[in-house]
C-alpha cells in the first residue's frame, strides 16, 4: 500500500483535491490542514478525487464532516468522486451518502459545479 499523498489544483470552476494511499489517524491532519488553507483562500467549490486512495478510517471521514457546513454556508460544496468500493464501503457504513454528493468520476462532479455556475449566470 502506498504512503499518503495529497495534491490540489484548480480545474475551473472548482478546486480538485487528489488523495492517494491511506487516510487514517496518522495522515488525516494533513487533509485537515489542506481544507483549512482552502477555506482561508475562500476556495469553496471543492471536488475530492479518491481514485488513488486505498484506505480511509473515521479520522478521514471526520475531516469532511468538520468543513462541509462552512463550505456550504459560502455557497460552495465538497463533492466526492472516484472512490474504490472499499473506500465507499466506509462512507456508506456511517450514512455519509445522505450528506454528500458522491460521483463515480471527478468529471461528473466538476460538471455539477459548471451547471450551477451556468444557472446562476442565466438567472442574473
Amino acid at each position: 500500500m502506498k504512503d499518503f499523498f495529497i495534491s490540489t489544483r484548480e480545474e475551473s470552476p472548482a478546486w480538485v483535491v487528489e488523495l492517494g494511499g491511506y487516510l487514517d489517524a496518522h495522515t488525516a491532519p494533513q487533509l485537515e490542514q489542506t481544507f483549512q488553507d482552502m477555506l482561508e483562500r475562500e476556495r469553496y467549490r471543492i471536488v475530492v478525487d479518491f481514485n488513488q486512495l486505498d484506505y480511509i478510517s473515521s479520522a478521514g471521514l471526520g475531516v469532511f464532516m468538520a468543513f462541509i457546513e462552512d463550505v456550504r454556508e459560502n455557497q460552495g460544496d465538497i463533492k466526492l468522486a472516484g472512490m474504490t468500493p472499499k473506500v465507499f464501503n466506509v462512507f456508506d457504513l456511517l450514512g455519509f451518502p445522505m450528506l454528500y454528493e458522491i460521483y463515480d468520476h471527478r468529471a461528473e462532479a466538476l460538471n455539477k459545479f459548471t451547471e450551477k455556475v451556468e444557472d446562476s449566470t442565466a438567472d442574473s
Binding site: 473515521s58 471526520g62 464532516m65 468543513f67 456511517l94 455519509f96 450528506l99
Partner: peptide, 24 residues
Amino acid sequence: RLDIRQRARDHRQGGLGLHIINIV
C-alpha cells in the same frame, strides 16, 4: 444514535470510530 446531519452542523469531527466499532 448517529445523526450525521447534526454532527456536520455542529462541526463535530470525533467519535465516529465508536460507531464503526459497534456496527462492525
